[in-house]
Write a protein that binds this DNA or RNA. Structure first.
Lengths: 217, 217
DNA sequence: GCCTCAATTATACACTTGCATAATTACAGG
DNA sequence: CCTGTAATTATGCAAGTGTATAATTGAGGC
């Protein structure tokens, strides 16, 4: 008796791919790249390792897809706040900065992923391209918000300011993810608004829209 | 003929341990934790894999030693600037902040190491302890510099300010390591001084000691 | 109900990893 | 020069890695 063959259900390609990508992200965030073996990923996704090769030509391809999904999700989560933001440029920028510095964008799991992917992004050109696309998209969005502020329109200077503000935001994001309990609720946003405000010469903290737009459906 | 046995020189224990630790750090910074296999480490250190087991009970022990060496080196590099700093509290703090945001403290290799160690620091209690010691030591140093500033002495508030400033510094440090070419020389220090100054209500940028104390032996 | 075909599983393989142990060799002290 | 001993190398091994390929099985069309 060599045991019964495992029962299974057929699923659509998209669902399976999503499940595998999601499982890979979970494992990397928990235990780093080392933990994301094909067997562990398949196990977490509820399938057997062979199926990975059926949907992805190689494990590297799955990893790239997971990274792309992560970056897109985070950008979308941050940009979503602009939909409900007021028209005033300073308020929009303040809302954007604040959203980047609180959950769900700030999340210890995301930083684990960030660290886990770092070396692959550095060494694998395909990963580097995915990173560049997302990063530049984010920075352009930020530069647009800065350009909308009242004042002289100097594109070169706006670009430099966007880079600087992006640095502060990214840095504080990492810090918030790394030390979630070091900051009181709202404190990280406040630090970020002060710091970005100092760079731009604007009192952003005062411009933050009143209610952090809690979802109330 | 089974080839000649490799020639070798006997070395002191300390030199060999240092060489192995250094090799491990190099490899982790270049290729992440995955790249630091016992064989690769031994190769880089100019020895054979068996010697690692002779000086370290396990590879994990070598890894921990490497992490400790890294953290101590970085803290020392940053604190070194205080030796040549003036007595004025604001100038001392400014010098300290600026030193944290320029080479050799800011260094792409260090961030690769930071990312590589992240998951081990999270999961291995021994690693977490090493981290806590170094981190708290750094923050206490920063808090001491803040407490020396003129103004009311409120320890609880000073602690909160130290945490916030530490967050900005750490974050900008990471950003400077990640995107070295995004910032003009001196720009990152300037951003950091503005941001920390905004948190503390001090014009730190104006307090920075004139010459960045270039070594001229 | 059967039959087809793709989705899924099972098995095998070559390779790498960390670790243990035995065999050597450099170097100090007589 | 010899000899002991500890530093160093060489070899082997069990476990885990990604991947290739063959064997099964679920589910829709007739």
């Amino acid at each position: 008796m060599q045991g019964e063959r495992r029962k299974f259900r057929r699923e659509g390609e998209e669902r399976r791919r999503d499940a595998l990508v999601s499982a890979a992200l979970d494992l990397i965030s928990e235990g780093g790249p080392t933990a994301a073996t094909v067997r562990a990923i398949a196990d977490r996704a509820g399938v057997t390792p062979g199926l990975i090769r059926h949907y992805f030509q190689t494990k590297e391809e799955l990893t790239r897809e997971a990274y792309r999904a992560l970056m897109q999700r985070m950008s979308a989560e941050n940009a979503a706040v602009l939909g409900a933001a007021p028209a005033d440029p300073a308020a929009r920028l303040a809302a954007f900065v604040a959203a980047a510095l609180r959950p769900p964008v700030v999340d210890p799991r995301s930083m684990g992923l960030w660290a886990g992917f770092l070396h692959q992004v550095r060494s694998d050109p395909a990963m580097a391209e995915i990173h560049a696309e997302t990063y530049l998209g984010y920075r352009d969005l930020l530069q647009g918000l800065i350009a909308a502020l009242p004042g002289p329109a100097d594109p070169a200077r706006q670009r430099a300011l966007a880079i600087a503000c992006n640095g502060v935001i990214d840095g504080l994001w990492l810090e918030g993810c790394a030390l979630p309990q070091a900051f009181a609720p709202g404190e990280l946003e406040h630090i970020g608004l002060e710091a970005v405000g100092a760079i731009l010469g604007f009192d952003l903290a005062a411009s933050l829209p009143p209610a952090p737009t809690e979802e109330t459906p």
